[in-house]
Design a protein around this nucleic acid. Sequence first.
DNA 1: TCCACGTCTTAATCAACGCTTAATGTCGCG
DNA 2: CGCGACATTAAGCGTTGATTAAGACGTGGA
Lengths: 221, 221
Amino acid sequence: MDLLLVEDDPMLAEVICDGARQNAWRIDHADCAAAARAALVDHAYSAVLLDIGLPGESGLTVLRAMRAGYDVTPVLMLTARGQLSERIEGLDAGADDYLVKPFQVDELWARVRAVIRRSQGRVVPVFSWGEIELDRSRRVVTRAGARVPLSAQEYRTLLALLERPGRVITREHLERVVYGNASAIESNTIAVFIHQLRRKLGEGLITTVHGHGYMIGESGA
Amino acid sequence: MDLLLVEDDPMLAEVICDGARQNAWRIDHADCAAAARAALVDHAYSAVLLDIGLPGESGLTVLRAMRAGYDVTPVLMLTARGQLSERIEGLDAGADDYLVKPFQVDELWARVRAVIRRSQGRVVPVFSWGEIELDRSRRVVTRAGARVPLSAQEYRTLLALLERPGRVITREHLERVVYGNASAIESNTIAVFIHQLRRKLGEGLITTVHGHGYMIGESGA
DNA sequence: TCCACGTCTTAATCAACGCTTAATGTCGCG
DNA sequence: CGCGACATTAAGCGTTGATTAAGACGTGGA
């Protein structure tokens, strides 16, 4: 049972994290939207506890980005009292349930269990192309059944490509995926990751589309 | 969700681009009419945010050129306060909505969503002739189902021809499409692109109309 | 605390590609 | 038959991507 907590209040975050660990659940903590995005790319969680009222970028945009990317991980919103419109927006955006602060932690765990139980019928997708498989729930990539160890950035780059096989992914998009929107990057890191992926996964997999970006599959050749 | 922003003020452009990315939308930025034309040829956007008061060539001419070319992408005009006649002209020319500067960015996003929602019924056309297909939303050309890789200039040339099958397209028009109106070209580049297209897509496709230009379909077929 | 290791970034160099040009060959029209 | 319009090549050049290797950085273990 892996959880992601997105919460900017360190006190509350600590309480929740401790509680989760007492339930013998793994929990990661992101304190802002950018960190949450990065974590979501890195790992397939059983559920996300999402504080909507984050400083800067709202939690809602994280949720929308997830759903826009066909990420169906259950999301439990944490909202402040009285923010009714936020809750409505959140449910519209694809949240599975919400909890109004302040709340009893016991109720939080009950809701988390309920949300996860409801989602059991769903399937966490395994992306694949040819002999390459990427299992998001285990964060594992295999080639012809053999496990291929990838670094975090390599994994994110590959995932972004595998999510839309047959379509060109621009370098700009890859940078946003790898660096969580705040691209303060200056050099050819993406080219390096592509190079590593080709080395580890075989040459034929990733096609270069000159002047546009990279692509997996359907090279037309 | 792909957007094109046409705006010459770099400050405002940056604000809008950042906002779009926080919404997890892709956005391209053109700072003049010529760049906008080129971008519109290269890609089928979900919507265009068009500043009317550009230096040099007005945004209105971009809009008119789009509609004249049967491009139905939703267009949201950005106009300066008080320029009522501009707004009327813009709506007449086929804009879907307008926003008066200065505006709240939140309102901008609301309008963009509205404009896109209204346009959902529409279809981004896939141009085709015979066994050739051109998919603007993916920027992909296929021949009998097989993907044909085209360079940027080849793609633009083909699109211009495919937009009006059975009609003669002059070399001047093609140059304007390929070089975004600022044709600082001296030689026979268009002839070269036509040659490459014929080589990649088959001889019968493009007909030469001596003394006038080129054409796809009819007559020779 | 310090060292070893793997990862990430930078930068330099090399290769591939696309665009333009121009020279030459071919066709159509007057 | 001659001229102008178009077709076909191939070479030069700049841009883009590929490939390295070395340094910075952070983490975990001794």
